[in-house]
Design a protein around this nucleic acid. Sequence first.
DNA 1: ATGACGCATCGAATGCGA
Length: 260
Amino acid sequence: MKITTWNVNSLGVRLPQVLDWLASTPVDVLCLQELKLTEDKFPLQAMQEAGYPHCAVFGQKTYNGVAILSRHPLDEVQRNIAGFEDEQARVLGVTVHAPGGSLRVVNGYFVNGQEPGSEKFAYKMRWLEGLRLWLSMEIALPRPLVLVGDFNITADDRDTHDPVGLHETIHHTTEERQAFAGLLGLGLIDAFRMFEQPEKSYSWWDYREMAFRRNKGLRIDHILVSEALKDKVSACTIDRQPRKNERPSDHAPVTVELVI
DNA sequence: ATGACGCATCGAATGCGA
């Protein structure tokens, strides 16, 4: 079973690329972030025709918005973090009922934070603590959990092309990395780091200055799995191919493969 | 470096992303 996370930076613009990608990479569950559209504009029919009849959508105009497309039935849809008031559509939790068993999938478009010390950064830290508290309850339930999304955090210096120049800047601060570690502390494991990976593996590259061609990127899109899934993860990979498209998203899709 | 690039917005200059 394959689960993918992909920040598409406007589904309206990226839909043809998403459909192309799914045609060549038929994953079981696709978690999208930054739809930048409302639920009524979500291309439900196109997704159904692509083989994803089960969709949960939490949209928002202009900014944010998340969705989960699935080949398998899903239910228990949670919009945003339980117990955390939020104006912005950033989180979608569902239970996917795959043939090999059911699992909880939480898809998040984490707060960017703009700049350490700013009001947006304070919101990011509050949001992260709200997420940790909610997931501490989710993870206590007797079912496997997968947390995916655009975390907007580098877990450590391996995740950045410039650890010195970007030291303590946004996505690299000690506070953000402690919050990431706090999620691991719940009993979640960074699936990507379970395997030997190429040096300088990133999931996002700035549109400017030919950052992709020069591989000046960050790994900020992550997949964390609960302990029960630890021995069932067979691969976790970043697909750089869609970043080479014309008019690509600035993020690449990240996929985890589970033997269930 | 108040930059770059791309997307969105009631119309073009600005907010935001990361």
